[in-house]
Structure formats: C-alpha cells, structure tokens
Nucleic acid binder design. Structure first.
Lengths: 204, 204
DNA sequence: ACCTGAACACCGTTCAAGT
DNA sequence: ACCTGAACACCGTTCAAGT
C-alpha cells in the first residue's frame, strides 16, 4: 500500500505524487485511498517512516563524536536512496512514527551519554538532524537541476554576474565545482561537531 | 503588484497563496497576472526579494564573528516579519535577484576578509544561511501549530510516549518549553561560529 | 471490509480575442 | 499596453451507494 507510494515517488518525484496517480497505480479509484489512509499528510508521514526504516544505528562502542558522524553519513545515504526523500521528511513535519522516533532516541542517547545537558542535547539533536535533512534536500535539488539544464549553464550563472558588484560571491562560488557535495557535507559535520565538542568541554 | 502578493501572504499564508486569489485581490482575472509575471515561481522569487529588501547589513568595523552574528539575528528578524517568509525563501530556490545576491555578497565578504579560503567561505556561507532559514521556518511552523491546538497538547505528545522505549528523547525534549526559540537560535549560532573559528585558527 | 460514481471546490497555465 | 472568456488538464476530499 505505502510501498506503491514509494515506488511512485521514485518514478515521478514528490511534486507529481498525487492521490489520483497513486490510485491509478494501484488500479483503484482515488476515493478508495481514503479508506486506507486518513490524509495526504498521513500518507507522507507513512512514506517518511518507510524511507527511514533501513537506517543502521551507529556502533555504541565508538566515541560519541564518531557515532554522531556515522549517523550523519548513514542518514545522508538513506535519504539519497529515494527521490526527493529529504523533501518528504521536511514536508511530513515533526517525527511521530516509531522509526523516526527511534532515530531521535538514538542520537539523543549518544549526546546524553557524552555528557550534554538535556537541554543542550535537544538543541544539538535538532541542529544536527536539520543540517543533514536540509543538506541532502539541497544536494538533490542541485543534482536534479544539473540534470535538466546542461552542466555548463549551471556554472555560467555565476559568470554572468557583474564582477564589480559581487566580487566576493564570484571569488568564492567560482571555486565550487558542483561535484563536491561530499566535501561540503564533511565540512558542515566538522564545523558542527567541533562547535559541539567545544561547548561540551567548556561546560565541564 | 508584488506588494499585493506580500499582503496576501500575510493574510492567508503560503499554502493559500494562489494566482487566482491574488488576481481577485487586485480586482483582476487570473489570466491577467501572466502579463505581469512569468510564472508562479517567478512571483515567489519576486516575493523573496521583497521580503529580504529591508535587511540591514552589519557594521563592517566589527570583528567578523560579531558581523556574522548580527547578520544572523537581523535575518531572523526580517523573516519573522512576514508570514511563512522563510518557507517562501526556501520555495523560491537559489537567490537570483539583486537583494538576495547582495546579502550573499555581504556575508561572503565578511568571511573572506576574516581569512577563510574561497572554498571555505562558500561552504560556511551556505551553512550559515541554511541554518538561519531553516531555523526560522521551523520556529514559525511550531508557533502556528501552537496557535491552532492549545499549548498543553503541544507538550503532551512527549508525555504520551512509552517511557521505556524513548527515555533519552523524553528526558531531553521534556526540558523544551516551546518559548525558547531565541535561546535555541543563540545555541545554534554559537556552535556554528565556534566551529568556524576553530577551523580558521587551525588553517593559520 | 473494501471499493465506486459523482460531485464540490479548488488549482496553474494558455491563448485567442478584446480595448 | 493591459485585460477578459473560455478552456485544458489537473488537484484533495467527501459521501452516499454498492458488493
């Protein structure tokens, strides 16, 4: 039932994922879906649960930093496995299903055992989760966009800018190759983890 | 023209902002809008430009950290000034208009002058910008949701969870009062800036 | 328990035609 | 230069009715 929705998502993307198309795929009329599912929002929540299901929790024997890092990379991998997966998570709002709650529990557990206060744990957990989700959403959007237009055009919008008005933008963005998503992800994770580690050490 | 769209956004929110309603507000038929505006996407881009227009750039005499921090708080202030503003920025994609490009240029300039490499500047700039936008989007969503349901219910979803399955989640999330958006924002900014500062010092 | 027909109240967008 | 009428191809959702 929800598996069909996931297949459809991979085929057509989130924007074209409609109740009517899903019904068609199931050889059913659209009205019938409302017996299986309360809402489209509800469907998205179920979809988010399904996407996130195969996530491997990190090895609890590792230091907290390595665990958080591993979970970040694993989450990125999971979200890249389905089309628009990160957008589905964002669109389906706060986690309510067991799979997503479990992941929150895992990351909060790592942070608490590392010595963060409960409040800092909650803040840091949301910060990390938001970073990963947004990052992958952007990464996927850029990849889609690069697939539509030719990749030269993607570069050239920077070159089109008036150089005297945006010198720093051009200097910095000019270094981006577009194929450096992993490096950018590592950068973000490092900055966040360094910031969190510093905070932890200071509080002791 | 776009001012009417901004008014409508404040009145009804992004989800209900349709071309047809906007036309009605202008005492016009929907088809006429397509003379003034190419697309709905184009309209959203113009809207994003308009929202961001009154942003005050930080004092260039300040240390880089203070400038970035000031710009972060200013951006949050600007985005909270209009309903669903953060979502509009996210929905309208990468910045193309002069106002948003100017802000990117400002933040990149601060980072470059602080001594970051061009690549690190681009990474850090996106990271900071994404953090602020996403944070405000979430903050606004939570505030909306709290306005709809009574605020007790917002607390109780945590209390409803089976305590044996999610001990860390409950311990950490239980400390959140819902009215601590500013504190959470400060936390995120501090973590990011600490991480960035460490990276800058290491590279020298 | 599961599905359908038919309807309601919407969308974004195009295009020939009007003034 | 700016607007309209009419249409096209869609949406999510409800609800009585069928089996």
């Amino acid at each position: 039932v929800v598996q069909a929705a996931l297949d459809l998502l991979d085929e057509v993307g989130l924007d074209a994922l409609s109740m009517r198309r899903l019904a068609e795929k199931l050889s059913i009329k659209a009205a019938s879906l409302y017996w299986h599912v309360r809402d489209k929002d509800h469907l998205l929540a179920l979809l988010a649960e399904e996407i996130v299901a195969p996530t491997q929790p990190p090895d609890p024997a590792l230091p907290w930093r390595d665990q958080i890092e591993a979970l970040g990379w694993e989450t990125r991998r999971i979200l890249l496995a389905h089309r628009d997966a990160a957008r589905v998570l964002a669109a389906s709002g706060a986690p309510t299903g067991p799979n997503r709650l479990r992941l929150v529990e895992v990351s909060f557990g790592v942070l608490m055992r590392a010595g963060f206060t409960p409040a800092d744990t909650a803040f840091a957990g949301y910060l990390l989760n938001d970073f990963v989700t947004l990052f992958v959403a952007e990464e996927a959007a850029l990849a889609d966009q690069a697939r539509e237009t030719d990749s030269e055009a993607a570069h050239n919008w920077v070159a089109m800018l008036p150089a005297d008005q945006y010198p720093n933008l051009i200097a910095a963005a000019g270094t981006l190759t577009g194929a450096d998503a992993e490096e950018r992800f590592r950068f973000g994770m490092e900055v966040l983890l360094d910031g969190l580690e510093l905070r932890l050490n200071r509080s002791r």
